[in-house]
């Protein structure tokens, strides 16, 4: 297929996924900020949302200061934020529109519906309305994923769309996990204390994994087990290992269809091997934050390899 078509499909996937991630980050921040306020807890929650979205420099440069209002506005609608929820859905739709004929009607309607909904809901400021807005965003990503998996032929168009989603999701899970790093515990709170516990629980809830956690570990929430679930557990669909598995399988399907493997395949499968050998104790030993930063860099390198190999 044309590289431009593949590129549009890939970015449709990435932008839809990122819109979903931003909705989850904002939801987490709302919960964390709602804790009985002790010192700077509220501000920390919102600053954490900005940091883990990877838009700190843009946010600071815009002259805004951290508050619930400014962060919500910037991440959801910010006209000067090229990766706000609104911008992501708009870009996903623009990309999809340019390859209309490569999409099924159902998938197009799901994406176009997200964009129409965006215009209908406007830019709510009241917390209730805003929460509804976030629910809407999460539901559209489900609709898009469902429509693609139920109606698209399993050919390169599908693999590129899914590849975009998987690469973005890997990035997003890593960033979500890193939120905890940015949520420094206020003085007087101890590790393993009530606030610490609450923060980890919130994190799990945001990736729809609280129940999953209880099923898998049958224990109260412990940091290294949360990390284990989100990093290494292959049963957990958003874990880094699962995302990596998906990336490898999509790339392998492309390699099979095209009869040619390239740098993207090699990079991806090397990384999957590393996951298979990793232990969460070792990761904690050398620092979870550092591990995540390393993962994000490698994920970017993989995305660049995909771009180079297929999309230009």
């Amino acid at each position: 297929m044309l590289s431009r078509t593949a590129d549009s499909l890939y970015w449709t996937g990435r932008y839809m996924e990122r819109a979903d991630f931003l909705a989850r980050i904002l939801e987490a921040a709302i919960r964390l900020a709602a804790l009985p306020a002790k010192d700077q807890a509220t501000v920390t929650a919102w600053a954490g949302a900005i940091a883990s979205s990877g838009v700190k420099s843009g946010f600071d440069a815009s002259g805004r200061t951290v508050s619930e209002k400014s962060v919500r506005e910037y991440l959801a609608f910010g006209a000067d934020n090229s990766t706000s929820i609104k911008a992501c859905i708009t870009k996903a739709r623009t990309n999809a529109r340019s390859v209309r004929t490569a999409l099924t009607i159902e998938l197009w309607e799901a994406i176009n519906g997200a964009w129409n909904g965006l215009n209908e809901l406007g830019e709510p400021t009241k917390r209730d309305d805003f929460t509804n807005f976030l629910d809407f965003v999460k539901s559209t990503s489900l609709a898009v994923e469902g429509a693609s998996s139920r109606t698209m032929l399993r050919n390169d168009a599908y693999w590129f769309l899914r590849l975009g989603m998987a690469i973005e999701r890997a990035d997003n899970t890593a960033r979500l996990l890193d939120v905890k790093y940015h949520l420094l515990l206020p003085p007087g709170e101890r590790v393993g204390g009530q606030l610490d516990y609450f923060q980890w629980t919130t994190l799990l809830r945001e990736v729809s994994a609280l129940t999953a956690y209880r099923w898998v570990y049958r224990e109260s929430v412990r940091p290294w087990l949360v990390a284990d679930l989100l990093v290494l557990n292959r049963q957990m669909p958003r874990s880094l290992a699962s995302c990596q598995g998906m990336i490898v399988s999509y790339l392998e399907r492309l390699a099979t269809d095209y009869g040619r493997r390239g740098p993207a395949q090699r990079l991806a499968s090397n990384r999957l091997t590393q996951f298979n050998e990793a232990r969460i104790e070792d990761i904690f030993q050398s620092g979870l934050h550092e591990y995540i930063q390393g993962f994000l860099n490698e994920n970017n390198a993989l995305a660049a390899a995909v771009q180079e190999q297929y999309l230009v």
Binding site: M1, L2, S3, R4, A6, T101, D156, F160, L254, Y258, R260, Y310, L311, V312
Partner: peptide, 22 residues
């Protein structure tokens, strides 16, 4: 057949090519 835009095509050595994923 493919519907292409100018950016999908390029000319090398007096021959026209389209950029594809293959």
């Amino acid at each position: 057949v493919e519907l292409v835009e100018g950016g999908d095509l390029f000319v090398n050595d007096d021959t026209v090519y389209m950029r594809t994923t293959e």
